[in-house]
Computed example of a mutant assay.
Amino acid sequence: MSVWDNLTGQQDAIATLRAAASTDPGNSAMTHSWLITGPPGSGRSNLAYAFAAALLGDNEDDETTRRQVAARTHPDLAVLSTERVIITIDEVRTLVSASQFSPSVGRYRVVVIEDADRMTERTSNLLLKALEEPPPRTVWILCAPSEADLIPTIRSRVRSVRLRMPAVADVAALLESRDGVDAATATIAAREAQSHIGMALRLATNPEARARRRQTLQTALGIRSVSDAVVAAGTLLAVAGDDAKAITEERDAQERESALRSLGVAPGGTVPPALRSQLRALEDDQKRRATRSLRDGIDRIMVDLLSLYRDVLLLQLGVDEEPINESIRPDLDAAASASTPATTLAVMDAISLARRRIESNVAPALALEAMLVAISRHSTR
């Protein structure tokens, strides 16, 4: 099995990285620092780790290396994947120190930074120094939504590989072949996730996630007044909270169990006072992850709402294209006939404004209320 097999819809990017990882004598396609960009769900980190496995293995079919990279246990692989809103300077400083060592078993030492756009300018400047004078066999792989998310001096020192959003058919085919999802469910999930691979998998395999998404759409369609909007804001916050909890709860429990086991504490046993600080540090990390997961959940709601009103607008304009939310087609038809394209565009503007406000650290509850009040003003009474 090749390291590239579970990637979909990115043939050009794969060809570029495959050429760079080649062991052929005189390979001129390789460079010491890379930036993989693409919209959320396009598979940036998946491609980064496939590239890492190709660089670290004897060949792209090296199963042992592929498994080690997937488990993040390869001795020549260093990874920074934050659960916080920002990547701290201490995290990057530690990574830069690790990048100075020579590889122990592979051809290269590979350093992967997911969400490199979460670095502050000061942190980015620390990384810049490492990119300017890297050891000869160290390779940096950064991931970010776009080149513009990084400072210009870093952009000038990396080779960029741009990903596109894979087609619905490609994502559905991946869910079928990799995860055993039936064809109909895979297609619906891929369409409703708008080709976001991770979200498509959740929708295809988790009935509760599908129910929460449908509740989001029905809540927005039911708004007719300001009071409806206020109630709906609370409902959507609760939906986002439930979604975030579903994502983090199981992982938190597994991490705590693993930590207790490594500390030698039996299940259900009392944690000695000397060890409690380590558990508190874990709990603090989990709280930060829960905060980020909630923000991500709220943003997913916004994306789903934009897809809803995009469908309504296309129906109003008579565009012959299958709606993203075909499963609620009667509701879409009713909404399209009850308003005009101008009011639908105004609603979409309100949703986009709410996303920008939340990104600027406006309280999500306030941003949601303002957005839904704007929707109520454009709804037919």
Rank of each mutant, 00 (worst) to 15 (best):
L221S: 01
L236C: 03
T64F: 11
I247R: 15
I247G: 05
E121H: 08
N325Q: 13
R377V: 09
R292P: 04
I358E: 02
P267A: 09
R210W: 03
V171N: 00
S146V: 08
A193G: 02
V271Q: 03
T340K: 13
V158W: 00
I298A: 00
S156A: 05
S339W: 05
V231H: 12
E147G: 11
L47N: 02
S339Q: 12
T82K: 04
R276K: 06
L77D: 01
E321G: 09
T291R: 11
R122A: 13
V110S: 03
R191W: 04
E83C: 06
A13E: 02
S177W: 03
A71N: 08
A281P: 06
A98C: 08
V265N: 00
V161Y: 01
L308F: 06
F51T: 04
E250I: 14
V161A: 10
L237N: 03
R256K: 15
S195A: 15
S337G: 15
G41Y: 04
R224P: 07
A336Y: 01
M165L: 15
R122F: 04
L263P: 00
D90Q: 07
T340A: 11
N6A: 11
V226A: 14
S293R: 10
T216M: 05
L236D: 02
L279C: 06
D115C: 00
S352Y: 07
L163M: 03
S2F: 10
L313Q: 07
R107D: 10
R210G: 04
G38C: 06
R292W: 07
A342S: 14
D182T: 09
V231T: 13
L175R: 00
A240P: 01
L77Y: 02
I86P: 00
A220F: 04
S262Y: 00
Q286D: 07
T16M: 10
E176I: 06
A244G: 05
E176K: 06
G264E: 00
S327A: 13
I328S: 06
A130M: 09
A338Q: 13
A54S: 11
D5E: 15
A50S: 13
T82Y: 01
I324E: 05
L163G: 01
N125A: 09
P152I: 05
A184P: 02
A50L: 06
T82I: 11
S160K: 06
A259Q: 07
E283Y: 13
D61A: 15
R162T: 09
S160D: 02
E83A: 10
D24R: 15
